[in-house]
Amino acid sequence: MAKVSNILFVHGAWANSSAWEKVLPLIGAAGLTGTAVSLSLTSLADDVATVKRAIALIDGPLLLVGHSYGGSVITEAGSDPKVAGLVYVAAFAPDVGESAGSLGAGGPPTRLLEVVRPDEHHFFKLTREGVDEVFAQDLTATERAMIFATQNPLAGAALGGEVTAPAWKEKPSWYLLASEDHTIHPELQKKMAARIGATTVTVEASHVAMLSQPDAVAKLIVQAAA
């Protein structure tokens, strides 16, 4: 893979583009140009379309970086010829016919289902307990309160969106495994990283590793870009 200088960041469930606010300055200091999209979290198809529009506006090759559910999005959107590689951050990496939801259900159990609440339209939000104990337990109380207050509800349909053309089968991949993740079990992360043949690093972090361990996340991205 040739060296790239453009990085496109894709957030996960219950988040927005600010999930990458600590990583963006670090990759900028390394000479890379970062762009962070904001997903609707309404369906996999909608979110893939958002990423493809962002890819079209970037000149030259790029890396896609996805967190959590965003891993499903970059897996499907990454077939674009501009995409040189994929970086997964505690993220789902589905194969054909798989979804974030099916992978999560098939892996070792976590407490996630205990700490999400649906509304009448089948959109789900995290409870405060979920943010504090399952999603972001290694962040400060102030940071956890901000995540709870600004979370973007996730449609059940998005979690169920099945991948049709996994880009990791054709593009090189990297995986940051969060060893203290209570949302996507670390053993499931390990299994997915091995299946896609990713260059893998492990950090002691909660599910939101890009916020609790931004230096490690940025380091992996810089290595992948080189």
Rank of each mutant, 00 (worst) to 15 (best):
A136F: 04
K3Q: 15
A226R: 14
A216Y: 00
G78E: 09
L177N: 07
F123M: 14
F148S: 02
V73N: 01
F92M: 13
A49P: 06
L63N: 09
A29H: 12
H185Q: 09
G85W: 05
K125D: 10
A198W: 07
A193G: 08
A225H: 07
E114C: 01
G161Q: 05
P94L: 02
N6A: 11
E120A: 15
R111M: 09
H182W: 02
A224I: 09
F123W: 05
L188A: 15
A149P: 09
G78H: 12
R128D: 11
L26Y: 10
G85C: 03
V4A: 11
W20P: 08
L41V: 02
L39Q: 07
K191A: 15
E162S: 00
S17T: 08
D95A: 15
S79Q: 15
L113R: 13
I74D: 07
S40F: 00
F123K: 13
A193W: 01
T202E: 15
P153T: 08
K52T: 13
I221H: 07
A226D: 14
M210C: 02
E114R: 13
T127K: 09
A105F: 00
A198E: 05
A77Y: 13
A36C: 06
A155Y: 01
S173D: 03
I221D: 05
L24I: 15
R111A: 14
E114G: 02
R144P: 06
S68K: 02
V96C: 00
A165G: 06
D132K: 09
N16M: 01
I221F: 05
L112Q: 02
E76Y: 05
A56D: 15
S18H: 11
P172S: 01
A77H: 13
G12N: 02
D47N: 05
P61K: 14
D132F: 09
A91H: 12
D181H: 03
I27A: 04
P25K: 04
E143G: 08
G60Q: 01
L8G: 05
T142W: 00
H207P: 05
Q151E: 08
E76P: 04
G85R: 05
V73D: 02
A224M: 10
T75D: 08
F124W: 15
A136P: 03
L188M: 14
A56I: 01
R144E: 05
S17M: 14
H122V: 04
G66L: 04
G104C: 01
Y88W: 07
P186G: 03
V163E: 03
A145S: 14
L26V: 06
A15T: 10
G156E: 07
A90C: 12
E21W: 13
L24Y: 00
S17N: 15
S40M: 02
H185Y: 11
K125H: 03
L220K: 08
L32Y: 12
A19Q: 08
I55N: 01
L57H: 09
A91Y: 10
D80M: 02
I58H: 04
A167R: 06
I184C: 07
L211R: 10
A149H: 08
M210R: 04
A209Y: 08
S102F: 00
D138S: 13
A226M: 08
V87G: 11
R195N: 09
S18A: 14
L8T: 12
D119N: 15
A15P: 02
K3E: 15
V115D: 12
I184K: 03
S17C: 12
S206Q: 11
K190D: 15
K219M: 06
I74C: 07
V83A: 04
P118D: 00
A56N: 13
A209C: 10
G104L: 14
